[in-house]
Amino acid sequence: MGREEFVFLLIGLKWTVALSIVAFVCGCVAGLVVALARTSGIAIVEGVTAFYIAIFQGTPLLMQLFVVYYGLALVGIRMDAWAAVSVGLTLHASAYLGEIWRGSIEAVPRGQTEAAKALALGYVSRMKDVVLPQAIRISLPATVGFLVQLIKGTSLASIVGFTELTRAGNIISNQIFQPITVFGIVGALYFIMCCPLTIWGAHLERRFAASAR
């Protein structure tokens, strides 16, 4: 495999990173909304968000990307592959992160919210100053774990024709007929991204377990 092919893979890698970042950052913002809605105490809002989460947890990510990519085109919204997979992955991430954070919000002891209420703090301050800082700490290991899943999940974007790392590998492999070498390198690139995050997640988990004792 030559230099040009390798550079082509690196460009694919760049898009994988970009896609992961966009989906994770937008997914965090939307996921926060989902988590707050899911714990709002308003029955209908909680019900609707529970359904939203169930849909994304109960169907394959690939199907979700298909629905966004082809479905939006059907209703007349034209998007290029990059925008479509970003939207699809963001929605996917919002549901998963929303559910992770719902659990963490509920894991913060009730007494915290009660003390905040007794101090006349309104909802925004109760969440922003009291509950979320503690919930985020609790959720950090699971959040990092999901980020790793998300990075690997971006490879499915290749199937709707977006040239990220996996599709770049596919293209090169078809050109030079060295699938083992090419996908070995592709795999190594994913590993380099994901493995440190996994180690960091495990580290956070240990630290959290230690401080909870």
């Binding site: 007494g111 003390a115 905040a116 209420k117 007794a118 101090l119 006349a120 100053d129 009291v130 503690q134």
Partner: peptide, 17 residues
């Protein structure tokens, strides 16, 4: 009312962070 009423709990409920 909450601005006028302070409350102290059995479990303290200080904000740990």
């Amino acid at each position: 009312v909450r601005r006028e009423v302070g409350m102290v709990f059995q479990q303290f409920n200080l904000f740990p962070h």
